[in-house]
Design a protein around this nucleic acid. Structure first.
Lengths: 337, 337
DNA sequence: CTGTTAGCGCATTCAT
DNA sequence: ATGAATGCGCTAACAG
């Protein structure tokens, strides 16, 4: 890549004007006569001048950069979200820096610390922390840099959040299974994030609506150890819950592990029960799995607009939606009882 | 996030030394007495000072940032690669900016143009361009900024490349099918990238080794229109190639489309032929698809080390491997004839 | 071993 | 409408 060696001074010399004037036409502020503008433009073109964003940043405190902090870009939900963020940001001339936390609060802390010195204009955060103490809060966020939360809420962080309507999703999915006649419905999820908790809350509400007893052992939310799942735990769940006739698997990554175990246990082949998954994939399509579709692209797009709006202190068109809907895509993995 | 408002000057005042001295202890260069170092360190700690990377960059021409230019982070191969790049870069204190080209050379051009002014230290590029004219080449790259290619080679760009050994993969996969007794083997792929071409070259070599005739109609490489596949084209392929007994699908994204069509056409269910896919996924595992595994993490890791090595003009441990091996994961989708 | 000084490229106030 | 001058926060000579 060519280096940005040609500076505003070179352009000024070439055009026979001062650097201030060049700055005016490049930055589009102040007033410049048509004639000099043309001359400057010509010089810029001839020299192939591109403004040095770093110098601009140092001077103006704006680096046209936003950071996205997520668990991992390998997660397809985040990948699609980041993709949308990047596309949207590019529209507005922003670059995006990605930071993987691997879902470790400590790594998240490090990234934020590192970002301190980078004069980032804004942050989009899907935090690995489920709750933040007052003290941490100060370290994490003191209001200088615009920040929006995505996908998950964080207790103690009063910030804009763009997230799926997880409660509604859990509620309508459970109702769908209930309508098919299922009464003993299992739930498997991972982590203590608001996403999972909201979905489970929706599930509970649906049961309560029909005065159906909630059996705690049917809800399991801790099946992970460092990015891979514990097969034994999954097996034990199914052994202890042979009575369930339907299950909801709240994570896309978990679904694969569960199905693999079910195949081993010869449970899924027997069509012993119905199953609903979260987040679509080629697997879900090919296997005909009924799936709750989220729209990470929409969440990403909106999050990008939201931060950029805050950065530029203006309202971007379409801004305002914090809750993004979901769709229950019915395929053939749920049967009436 | 807190802003990086406390500067080197504040620290200097606090510690009762000059800014130069602070710079020395922060930057770890020059010589500082133990006593003053302690005083500076204490001041830094008290003030919560973090160096302003933007100012550092402007001054030292090093922003500790590398850019990754890819088709899309939504592509799981790239997502895993980017993930590894970010992890590795973080180890060395670098941030990574992602740029999606959507596989459009024009968008790629725009990103590179934008990057010009950002004082990026290095670039990792998976180009949407299959060949670059000498003129374009000059615009793209003049050697000032270290750049390495990943996944794909670009004709006319004499740069380090980190890629899968696609030729070997195509060769061994074809030989595997030949060993099972297949003689009429179909190939479906997308794009004119070196990846696809190399795999096909391996296929051709394997056939030639056994003096088996190459039938052009069995090789199809143009089934895409703007990120989605043309079902009719896929159907036509299979109608025109009813005689093939095995197929190799060279793209992960294409595999899904192909399987979906096969399901519709009732071809796969009939076990009419054997199938090998590229790049693993939950679908491949659940469906028992024999798959050529690539290692995007390894490619990403190596690419990161390579650019950083070039940036810092030193050799990082383990550096040097440009060709990353693949693994033919045999499952149950290929049957002897 | 440490301080002084001079920019890096640009935006911006103050003159003119 | 335009130019001169200043400084953003830091590094790197150069002195001492």
């Amino acid at each position: 890549m060519k280096n940005a060696n040609v500076t505003i001074t070179d352009v000024a010399k070439r055009a026979g004007v001062s650097t201030a004037t060049v700055g005016r036409v490049v930055g589009g502020y102040g007033t410049v006569s048509g004639k000099t503008r043309d001359r400057v433009l010509a010089a810029i073109d001839q020299l192939g001048y591109a403004p040095n964003v770093v110098a601009q940043g140092l001077r103006s405190k704006r680096t046209k950069t936003i950071a996205v902090i997520i668990g991992s870009v390998s997660n397809s939900f985040f990948a699609n979200m980041v993709n949308a963020i990047e596309n949207e940001a590019a529209e507005y001339g922003y670059n995006v820096i990605i930071c993987n936390t691997n879902e470790e609060p400590e790594t998240e802390r490090k990234h934020i610390k590192n970002l301190q010195g980078r004069m980032i204009d804004g942050i989009i955060l899907s935090s690995a922390c489920t709750a933040v103490s007052a003290e941490q809060l100060r370290e994490f966020y003191s209001g200088d840099v615009p920040m929006v939360l995505v996908d998950r809420r964080v207790e103690g962080l009063e910030l804009d959040v763009i997230e799926s309507d997880n409660f509604a999703a859990g509620y309508k999915t459970t109702n769908y299974l209930l309508a098919l006649g299922h009464r003993r419905i299992g739930v498997l999820g991972t982590g203590n994030y608001s996403t999972i908790n909201d979905r489970i809350a929706g599930y509970q509400k649906a049961l309560a609506d029909r005065r159906i007893e909630l059996v705690p052992r049917r809800v399991m939310t801790t099946i992970r150890r460092k990015n891979h799942y514990n097969d034994i735990e999954i097996d034990n769940y199914f052994l202890a819950n042979r009575d369930v006739t339907a299950i909801m698997v709240l994570n896309n990554s978990l679904a694969e592990a569960v199905l693999l175990r079910l195949e081993k246990l010869k449970l899924y082949d027997d069509r012993t029960f119905s199953i609903v998954c979260w987040d679509d994939s080629s697997m879900n399509k090919l296997l005909g799995l009924t799936t709750v579709l989220q729209f990470p692209e929409e969440i990403g797009r909106e999050a990008a607009r939201r931060v950029i709006g805050k950065i530029e202190k203006r309202t971007l068109p379409g801004e305002g939606i914090g809750l993004v809907g979901t769709e229950l895509k019915i395929r053939r993995s749920c049967k009436p009882l």
